[in-house]
């Protein structure tokens, strides 16, 4: 579970630089929430591409998360990267005035997808690729909005658990406020990941590490001292979120089908 942060930094910076350059890009975009993951991603991008080549997009809904906007701005100043701030409330409100709801998940998902839509438009506008910020914990338990915050061109953080991202953030000397911040998806004020999931990250990460990296059966993980309900809950989340980690299935008709046996690498001929 422990990482050698300088080595991981070296690998991830090389990954960002090489993947962008292969596709003919020199610039990257990171959606900055003021939280840990996007801050680590932006710091890596600034090192990999040069600070002038990173754009931090700050996309709040009205002033619901004023403190986070301030943290995102402070981080961008510290890294020396450009930022652009855009309030997404006119677009989100326009939609919900037509289909009103107080379902916080629907509203939160809509916001995440609104941000995705703006990031992708800026990808063309800025001739830059979007760097994803979903970590391994979120990807495995499905704690993200499909086609929302999970959408990106490349994802440097997807094989690091939340606690490993935090260790990398400390190595990158991110501001203490960001390192200590309670993780939140930012779907509504006062929301925290841990409250919503019902477990704390250190526990989630430790269980995921046993189940996924060590590939231990559930019974063994429970026998080694983890709470039965916690292990079962996490395993159920992994299974139920499989669809978020895959391309949608395509009905196979022909001898050679996209997603089945039309097999090429993402990086082919690059």
């Amino acid at each position: 579970m422990k990482i050698n942060a300088p080595f991981v930094e070296k690998i991830l910076c090389a990954f960002i630089r090489e993947e962008l350059h292969k596709f003919g890009f020199s610039k990257g975009i990171v959606g900055l929430s003021g939280g840990l993951d996007s801050s680590v991603c932006a710091a890596l991008a600034a090192k990999a591409l040069g600070k002038k080549n990173v754009l931090g997009m700050i996309l709040p809904y009205k002033d619901t998360f004023g403190k986070d906007v301030e943290d995102a701005r402070a981080l961008a100043r510290k890294l020396g990267i450009r930022t652009r701030l855009l309030d997404i409330s006119p677009m989100v409100d326009a939609y919900f005035s037509r289909y009103p709801t107080d379902d916080r998940v629907r509203i939160g998902n809509k916001m995440a997808r609104e941000r995705m839509s703006i990031l992708y438009d800026h990808s063309v506008l800025e001739k830059a690729l979007i760097l994803g910020t979903s970590n391994k914990t979120e990807l495995l338990i499905g704690y993200g909005t499909i086609h929302g915050d999970m959408a990106c061109a490349i994802n440097p953080l997807g094989d690091l658990y939340k606690s490993q991202v935090r260790a990398l953030g400390a190595h990158l000397r991110l501001p203490a406020r960001i390192l200590k911040k309670t993780p939140t998806a930012g779907l509504w004020p006062g929301q925290t990941d841990e409250d919503e999931i019902g477990l704390d990250y250190s526990e989630i990460d430790a269980i995921l590490y046993e189940l996924v990296d060590e590939r231990r059966p559930r019974k063994e993980v429970i026998a080694s001292g983890f709470k039965k309900e916690a292990v079962e809950k996490i395993e159920a989340r992994i299974v139920s979120s499989e669809f978020k980690r895959k391309m949608p299935p395509i009905a196979k008709i022909s001898p050679r089908t996209v997603g089945h046996d039309f097999l090429y690498s993402y990086d082919r001929n690059r």
């Binding site: 690998i11 090389a14 990954f15 090489e18 993947e19 490349i154 690498s265 993402y266 990086d267």
Partner: peptide
């Protein structure tokens, strides 16, 4: 060395 599809 180098990357292909995220493999280092």
């Amino acid at each position: 060395v180098g990357f292909e599809d995220g493999k280092a």
